[in-house]
């Protein structure tokens, strides 16, 4: 899923400063799962912003609403007739959600309240870990199910580097060395020989550099 974290409140306050009536828009999807933009987080942020406004004698109206998903038109249109009562929307969606809402309601500024982080896994209660780069060309097969691009600090496709020590990464000893994991997995499940040859350079054109990527599924289209 997509993970995110709330921006510092000072930054949020700065961004919403020019507006008098603000709708806080939570999202019940990925960002709710990582406890960044769900109903509860939206309520907390709204309350804090209202307090900040009162403290500073700002005559600001801050209200909250939650959508099941902010990145799908069918959910976003629920704001029709509501959104225009506000000067701005402070979205607790991921970057995709923020832009989707803005696209459908171009007349109202939509401000992000979150920093969208990465694609990852819920590693433990309250711990989310990046494990996919979304590169558009999955190589997990070759690497024993551990992505060296997402999980090796140096994105080595022919690792490990000289900093791997006791299974830990030199950049952050908390992080397991992805290459250690790759070698262990392939040792266990067979396929270590895949690492004997040099893995060719990555085709990054599938990831970025040509504007927004898109997926077209004609069988899904009307």
């Amino acid at each position: 899923m997509i993970t995110a974290e709330q921006k510092p409140i000072e930054e949020i306050r700065h961004m919403i400063m020019p507006y008098k009536k603000i709708l806080l828009l939570g999202c019940g999807s990925c960002v709710a799962e990582c406890a960044a933009g769900g109903e509860k987080e939206t309520a907390m942020l709204a309350s804090a912003l209202r307090m900040a406004a009162k403290m500073n004698r700002e005559d600001t109206l801050i209200q909250e609403k939650n959508l099941d998903r902010q990145c799908v038109r069918d959910f976003i249109v629920q704001l029709d007739g509501i959104i225009h009562l506000y000067d701005a929307v402070l979205s607790l969606g991921c970057g995709a959600g923020v832009q989707a809402v803005a696209e459908i309601f171009p007349e109202v500024p939509v401000i992000p309240a979150l920093n969208t982080e990465f694609l990852g896994q819920t590693k433990d209660q309250g711990l989310w870990l990046e494990n996919c780069l979304g590169c558009g060309d999955c190589v997990l097969y070759y690497f024993g199910g551990v992505c060296p691009l997402a999980r090796c600090s140096k994105q080595l496709m022919n690792g490990p580097c000289g900093g791997s020590r006791d299974g830990r990464c030199e950049v952050d000893p908390e992080t397991p060395c992805a290459w250690q994991l790759i070698i262990e997995n392939l040792t266990r499940t067979g396929g270590l020989e895949r690492l004997e040859s040099v893995f060719p350079p990555k085709d990054w054109s599938r990831k970025q550099g040509r504007g927004p990527r898109k997926i077209v599924r004609e069988d899904q289209q009307r």
Partner: peptide, 8 residues
Amino acid sequence: KLIKSIGL
């Protein structure tokens, strides 16, 4: 933490 961040 949150209230501190708004200066309370």
